[in-house]
């Protein structure tokens, strides 16, 4: 299992749209991914779970990944949360 922190770049935080993008990416990996924030944790393959974290813009979340593709997953998730979420999906 590997863990890393990431700063939320989405200007409105983990709302449904951001959660949806994280789920879409996470589902491409075999690894189990858990995201922790403010004493809560959520399965990163669940939109409702992620949204209920209510992680705000500029705060740090902890990403835990375990599985054979964990390195790849970690890298791509950090990029999504720290950089790509700042930009609307259709502008990338």
């Amino acid at each position: 299992m590997k863990t890393v922190t990431a700063t939320v770049s989405d200007p409105v935080g983990f709302h449904l749209r951001a959660a949806g993008r994280i789920v879409k990416l996470t589902k491409t990996f075999d690894s189990e991914v858990t995201i922790r924030y403010n004493g809560r944790s959520a399965n990163a393959k669940s939109i409702m779970g992620l949204a209920s974290l209510a992680a705000e813009f500029g705060t740090e979340v902890l990403i835990e990944v375990s599985g054979f593709d964990e390195d790849d997953a970690l890298l791509k998730l950090v990029k999504l949360i720290e950089i790509d979420l700042a930009i609307a999906e259709d502008q990338q």
Partner: peptide
């Protein structure tokens, strides 16, 4: 629809 298909809800 997303809620209906949500992994956490099912699990």
């Amino acid at each position: 629809l997303m809620i209906l298909d949500d992994e956490m809800v099912w699990d």
